[in-house]
Nucleic acid binder design. Structure first.
Lengths: 246, 246
DNA sequence: CCCTGTGTACTAGTATACAAGAAGAGGCGG
DNA sequence: CCGCCTCTTCTTGTATACTAGTACACAGGG
C-alpha cells in the first residue's frame, strides 16, 4: 500500500547496490509494519534485535530508527529502549489539517487551469478504480487513489509537494488501518472521486475545493470513533519532537 | 574556527551534560551555516573533518548529515564526498506553496474565532517589532516575526503544524539570506503585519487571508531575481524536499 | 510483611576499526 | 608532448568494541 516514496531520489545516481537496499528495505518494512498496526503502539524494538533479524549491524538500523523517530513513528528513550510510538490524536488532526490545506488549494488551482490531457489522465484512473470496486480489489483501488491524488498535485504544478502530503497521510493511515472499512467504503470513495473530477472538468474551482474537503473529511471522520475503540493505542499528551530553533 | 573552539571548550567543562547535546548543537550549527550562506552550495564537507573540528567521532556527525540530507541541505555521494546542496528553485516554489496553503488557512481560521487574549498576544509582538524597526535590530525583528507567525498557527488550533512550515521556510530563507534586504524592508514587513492583525481583530477572514497571501508573496517575490543574480548557487534539476512529522 | 540496597542484564550513545570504491597525482611508455 | 596505467589517498559505508546509564529482580535487614 501506499507508502511514502520519499528520499533516495538523489542517490539513484549511484548504482543501487544491495548495501543501500538494506536500509531502504528495513525502513520500508518497519514503516509498513507500524502504519498497518502489525507492530502495535508501545511494542518495544531493540536496535540489537532488529539488527540480528536482518543480519546487519546496528549502524544502519540506528539510521533507520532515527528517521522513524523524526517522523513520529518511534520513540527512543536513551539507555532504556525504543518503542513504537502511540498514535497521537493531535498529530492526526494536524496531519488532516495539512492534507486539507495542501490538497484543497491544489485542486482549486487544477480546476482553474487543467487542460484536456490532465483530465484524461484523471478519468483514466477513475476507470481503474471503477474496475477495482467491481472486483473488490482494495489494494488496486488504493494504489490508484494515491496516484490520482498525486496527479492532482502535479497538475497544480507542485508534484513534489506530494511528499509532504504523503508524510502527513501516514499519520492518518495509521488510524485508518485500525478500522475495518465496510464493503461499500470503496464505492463511496469512488463516487466522491468522480465528483472531484467532474468539478475539475467543469473548471468549477470553488466546487472542486468543497468536494475535496468533504472527501478528505470522509476518511478523517472515522478517526475519533476509532480512537475511542482503541484507546490503548492512543495518547493524549503530544510527543516531544526535537525543535528546530526559536 | 570559532565553532570548534566553542564546542570543545564546552565538552571539557561539562562533558556528561553536553554529550546528548552534541548532535543538536552540530545540527544547529550546520543548518544555520547553510541557511545563512556561510557554507556555500557546492562546498564539500567531510564527515571526518567535521568530526575532528567538533572533537567527536564520525558516528554522531553521520546522523546529523543524514538528517540534513533528508531535508535537502546536503548531498551525499557514496565513496566520494558530501556537499552543500545547491538551492533548487522548484523546491523553493514548493516551499512557498506549502507555506501559503498552511498559513492562509490558519489565518482564516484564526480570524474567524480569535479571542481577545490571542489578539493581545499578537499586538504585543507587533510592539516588539515596532521597537526593533525603530532601532534597526534585524535579529530581534525576525525573532518576533517568527513568534508571531507561530502564534497564528497556535490560535488556529494547530501549533505543531509550524514545524512543517518551518521546514518549508528554511528553503525560502536560504534565498532570502542571499539578498541584502534594503533598510525599509523591515518597515514594510511590519506594516503588513499590522494589517494582518487588524484583519484578525475585525474577524475579517477573507481579508486576512488575502493580506497573508500578499505578505508571504512579498518575501517570495525576491526569489527569482536573486536566483538570476546568484545563478551558480542554484540548480534547475529537481531535488526532493522532505518534511518532519506534524 | 515491607522496604531498601545491590547486582545483573539489558539499553542506547559513542568511538574505533575495517572495507570498498572513487579521484587524482605521477611515473612510464609511446 | 600525449596518453595510459598504477598507486596513493581520500571519501563514505559497515561492523565491532566500549561507555554509561536505566530497570528490575532479589536478597537481606528492619
Amino acid at each position: 500500500m501506499a507508502v511514502a516514496r520519499h528520499a533516495s531520489a538523489l542517490r539513484d545516481v549511484v548504482p543501487a547496490e544491495t548495501a543501500r537496499a538494506i536500509g531502504a528495505r528495513l525502513y520500508q518494512d518497519l514503516h509498513d509494519d507500524i502504519i498497518s498496526g502489525r507492530r502495535r503502539p508501545g511494542e518495544d524494538l531493540s536496535e540489537t534485535r532488529v539488527a540480528e533479524q536482518y543480519g546487519v549491524s546496528r549502524t544502519p538500523v540506528r539510521e533507520v530508527f532515527h528517521r522513524l523517530v523524526e517522523e513520529g513513528f518511534l520513540r527512543v528513550v536513551p539507555q532504556v529502549g525504543t518503542y513504537v510510538a502511540p498514535i497521537n490524536l493531535a498529530a492526526v488532526r494536524d496531519s488532516q489539517y495539512i492534507r486539507e490545506a495542501l490538497e484543497c488549494r491544489a485542486i482549486r488551482i487544477t480546476a482553474a487551469k487543467a487542460k484536456a490531457p490532465a483530465i484524461r489522465a484523471l478519468r483514466q484512473e477513475l476507470r481503474v478504480q471503477e474496475r477495482a470496486v467491481a472486483i473488490g480489489d482494495r489494494a488496486r483501488f488504493f494504489a490508484s487513489d494515491e496516484r490520482m491524488h498525486q496527479t492532482l498535485l502535479t497538475a497544480a504544478g507542485h508534484p513534489q509537494v506530494w511528499d509532504t502530503i504523503a508524510a502527513a497521510k501516514a499519520q492518518l493511515d495509521r488510524v485508518r488501518y485500525l478500522s475495518l472499512e465496510a464493503g461499500d467504503w470503496l464505492a463511496m470513495i469512488f463516487e466522491q472521486h468522480r465528483v472531484l473530477i467532474d468539478r475539475i472538468a467543469d473548471h468549477d474551482a470553488a466546487g472542486a475545493e468543497r468536494a475535496m474537503q468533504a472527501h478528505l473529511r470522509t476518511v478523517f471522520a472515522a478517526a475519533d470513533r476509532i480512537a475511542a475503540e482503541h484507546a490503548d493505542f492512543f495518547e493524549g499528551a503530544r510527543a516531544k519532537p526535537r525543535r528546530r530553533r526559536a
